[in-house]
């Protein structure tokens, strides 16, 4: 579904990502783990179209999307849960969700997906009329997930979904990602919390200083002594 080949991205004059090739197959949950600043977010943003690659190709559903603007990719089914949640702070919960479904024209489908989002996070229904910035961090993350869900993603890009959340909430948001995966959404998950990510992923890649250093099934990576030492806390 997603094929990245030899991707190099610069931030200003420094190289953020260098010669990365990876694939995410249809229906797979693939994770990209690595330390803070390894370039994970840059890769995700480049797939979304928020950042221009210096070199390399990005193919989505077999089509080269490198020249397409972010909203075009979004309408093709590429949806992102951005790092730091990035909910719209002055919009209500419901308005945030409306933005998620903005490009869709199937009213019935949107209504059904809205129900699904509320069923997943009942607190959002209670807070539907509340302004986004007044939600707690955990609720904002739920809103960011729900906003992506109502876009009916084919490829969901998830960026550091557990960052800054209390452990109990970390479990809840990971469960939500797993649920979406089980329903057939292809997921590309970028995560510092490698332990959690490798628990739910099918396959994984390890990124270090902008380069891929390891890849394998989630089980292989969990068992890898190098990964254990550097990313799973020994």
């Amino acid at each position: 579904m997603l094929d990245i080949e030899n991707l190099t991205v610069h931030y200003g004059h420094s190289v953020a990502v260098s010669g990365v090739s990876l694939t995410v197959g249809e229906g797979e949950l693939v994770t990209l783990v690595g330390a803070n600043g390894a370039g994970k977010t840059t890769i995700l943003r480049t797939v979304m179209g928020l950042h221009r690659p210096t070199q390399g190709s990005i193919r989505y559903q077999g089509r080269d999307v490198a020249g397409l603007r972010p909203w075009v990719r979004s309408r093709m089914g590429v949806v992102m849960i951005p790092e730091g949640r990035r909910i719209f702070p002055e919009l209500t919960v419901l308005e945030n969700l409306r933005i998620g479904a903005y490009a869709r024209t199937d009213r019935d489908g949107v209504a059904a997906d809205l129900e699904k989002a509320y069923a997943m996070f009942p607190i959002l229904r209670e807070r539907a009329g509340q302004i986004g910035r007044t939600l707690s961090g955990g609720q904002q993350q739920m809103l960011a997930i729900a906003r992506a869900l109502v876009a009916r993603p084919k490829l969901l890009l998830v960026d550091e979904i557990s960052l800054g959340l209390a452990p109990i909430l970390v479990d809840e948001v990971f469960r939500a990602v797993e649920t979406l995966h089980r329903e057939g959404v292809t997921i590309f998950l970028v995560e510092q919390n490698a332990r959690k990510a490798l628990e739910i992923a099918d396959r994984g890649y390890v990124l270090s200083s902008g380069r891929l250093v390891l890849e394998g099934t989630a089980a292989e990576l969990r068992a890898n002594p190098e990964v254990k030492k550097s990313y799973l806390g020994g």
Binding site: L50, P70, M80, R86, F88, P89, L91, I99, A103, R147
Partner: peptide
């Protein structure tokens, strides 16, 4: 409020 995130959610900014 957030031009980039709006663009990523299908809005032709």
């Amino acid at each position: 409020q957030d031009l980039e995130t709006a663009a990523a959610h299908g809005i032709n900014t």
